[in-house]
Design a protein around this nucleic acid. Structure first.
Length: 571
RNA sequence: CGGGGCGUAGCGCAGUUUGGCUAGCGCGCCUGCCUUGGGAGCAGGAGGUCGGAGGUUCAAAUCCUCUCGCCCCGACCA
């Protein structure tokens, strides 16, 4: 491609709409333009990269034996109702009324659609297993789209769905997708880690997230650098905290704490560390109030709590319930004297002589002790892991960092096949629910997170595999006939004979502009035709990433470039 | 949805506090000259409903009311 014939609108200055590096660079390098909040146009360069990613994803899906389909973005609401997810998606679902007054949704994901197809078309174990996938635009009305294509309302997803006759089969399908994901992200040149994850609204029990470590990531990763344990914040287990030396149990003592409601306020007021305090929260579980005890500096993990209570979801009690249960204003609840079930985080059980609410307005208690002063009905891990916690597997210090989620695989089990009655007859003629898995990759996020990890002050640094053009030819003086003749000759050579994707910067610009733009758009290999060529008849080849330069006469350029490709494709 | 910020030429911004002639600057764009190894120089030029609507005023980018849009923090997020 000749630069003058395509559209690569580079910008010198950072656009005011962008905050993070990848977003700024995608705009400055002319990959994307924002059309409205959470929706982006891909310009020619961005489209080339997008297609590179899609090609890799498609190749590896096919290699893994998945079968490509293409499902509609338009979805009827009744299927979502049938699976019970209409409410779960809630306002995230983008819907509209058609001319007949029928409400239709723009698909946020496609479990229901694929399950509908499979239940109609597959009835026998003989047709299983099968994994179907598609690459398609998804729509979600994010409350707050941000960071360019990292969180947008419209995005491209590769979603795959596996159907098996039994759990052993699911495990195989899952492993096969997992491995394919590793190959995809490796080929894209991404540094990523895999973490255990909670399956959230997707349902199912086993799931793994593929994360690109990055401070702009919106997910929190808990990792052990010693044994390799890794999980996201929702999922990460808290290692039990050992009991300290037994202090002598002191007698409980009431203290006035007027208007001190929060742990922080009480901690400051009484000059007691928050980790020597216990907070008591009242939740509603299965219609009944339950007291939830946590160490003052810990935070409740509602997912874990709900699981511990055997519920799908739980919620904090409202103020009047709290006042009824505790007999005090909100902010003064404590375990002593409570008549309801008490569930406590493990960390609470090793404390002694702690501070907690007195179930009496404006009053707290000192020197409260478990067992002596109150009884815990249930001890569980119901909190988020926090700094200072130990690895649940090997007890080493854990590391807390952030990451961008680029892929997520789930073992769904029968959640959707039960709800939508996707059944098959087994070898004994017995009807069974299909065992499902689902697997997603955020295609746009691959691009953004790659840039986030691979750029410098001059611009993007593409790996060979995603580069929109692998080589850029820069004739230093586009007005010099001899220079342009060589440039065109090499361009033809590489493009037409060697089949390499080359960009020829034929613009009548000063060299500085061309060099800056070439670096900004991140083309891996530059071929410069200028003064050196007129002197020595050798072309200069410069690598974007390392800055290394090589010299080669025009007739050797093809083999030299191919040699560099080999070098650059090695990790 | 709560909090904060912004909206003036394609992009980045000044001007708004304290209303006042024809609304400026840099980059980019067009023409010409000149220049050609890291975002050159000179000269000339095009480009604006000052987000929109209404109001106050002799006079509004500037003050008031309403409204739309965008960004950031938080809440939320298969």
């Amino acid at each position: 491609m000749k630069w003058s014939q395509t559209l690569i609108p580079t910008l010198k200055e950072s656009p005011s709409e962008a905050e993070i590096d990848s977003h700024k660079l995608m705009i400055r390098a002319g990959l994307i333009r924002r059309i409205t909040a959470g929706a982006y146009a891909y310009l020619p360069l961005g489209t080339l990269v997008l297609n590179k990613v899609i090609d890799i994803v498609r190749e590896e899906m096919n290699r893994a034996g998945a079968i490509e389909v293409f499902l509609p973005a338009l979805q009827p609401l009744d299927l979502l109702e049938e699976s019970g997810r209409l409410n779960i998606f809630g306002d995230d679902l983008i819907t509209f009324k058609d001319r007949h007054g029928k409400t239709t949704a723009l698909g946020p994901t496609h479990e229901e659609i694929i399950t509908d197809i499979v239940r109609n078309e597959i009835n026998s174990y003989r047709q299983l297993p099968i994994t179907l996938y598609q690459i398609q635009t998804k729509f979600r009305d994010e409350t707050r789209p941000r960071f360019g294509v990292l969180r947008s309302k419209e995005f491209i997803m590769k979603d795959a769905y596996s159907f098996d006759v039994a759990y052993e089969g699911l495990n195989k399908s899952y492993k096969s997708m997992y491995d394919a994901y590793c190959r995809i992200f490796d080929r894209c040149g991404l540094d990523y880690i895999v973490v255990e994850a909670d399956s959230g609204a997707m349902g199912g029990d086993v799931s793994h997230e593929f994360m690109v470590p990055s401070p702009v990531g919106e997910d929190v990763l808990i990792r052990c650098m010693k044994c390799g344990y890794s999980a996201n914040r929702e999922r990460a287990e808290a290692a039990p905290i050992p009991r300290e030396d037994h202090a002598t149990l002191q007698a409980p003592k009431e203290v006035l704490t007027p208007d001190k409601h929060t742990i922080q306020e009480v901690s400051n007021f009484l000059k007691v560390q928050s980790n020597q305090m216990v907070k008591t929260m009242i939740f509603i579980s299965n219609g009944q109030p339950v007291a939830v005890l946590l160490r003052g500096d810990h935070e409740v993990n509602e997912t874990k709590l709900a699981k511990a209570l055997g519920q799908d979801a739980i919620a904090l009690a409202d103020h009047s319930t709290i006042e009824n249960v505790t007999g005090a204003r909100v902010g003064f609840a404590g375990p002593m004297g409570l008549k309801i079930k008490i569930i406590a985080d493990q960390a609470v059980t090793v404390l002694c002589n702690f501070v907690t609410g007195a179930n009496k307005s404006d009053t707290h208690l000192l020197n409260v002790n478990n067992e002596r002063d109150f009884k815990i009905d249930r001890i569980a891990d119901i909190r988020y892991v926090t700094k200072g916690d130990k690895c649940p597997k090997c007890n080493a210090e854990i590391d807390i960092s952030q990451g961008i989620e680029i892929g997520h695989v789930f073992k769904l089990g029968t959640k959707y096949s039960d709800a939508l009655k996707a059944k098959f007859l087994d070898t004994n003629g017995k009807e069974k629910s299909m065992i499902m898995g689902c697997y997603g990759i955020g295609v746009n996020r691959i691009i953004a997170s790659l840039i986030e990890r691979s750029h410098d002050e001059n611009g993007i640094i593409w790996p060979l595999s995603l580069a929109p053009y692998k080589v850029i030819i820069i004739p230093v003086n586009a007005n010099d006939a001899a220079t342009m003749e060589v440039a065109n000759h090499i361009y033809d050579d590489l493009t037409n004979i060697a089949g390499i994707e080359v960009l020829l910067d034929d613009r009548d610009q000063r060299p500085g502009v061309k060099f800056k733009d070439a670096d900004l758009i991140g083309i891996p290999i530059k071929i410069v035709i200028g003064k050196k060529y007129t002197e020595t008849k050798e072309l200069e080849i410069k690598l974007r990433k390392s800055g290394e330069t090589f010299l080669a006469p025009p007739e050797q350029i093809q083999s030299k470039i191919k040699h560099l490709f080999d070098m650059l494709s090695k990790p």
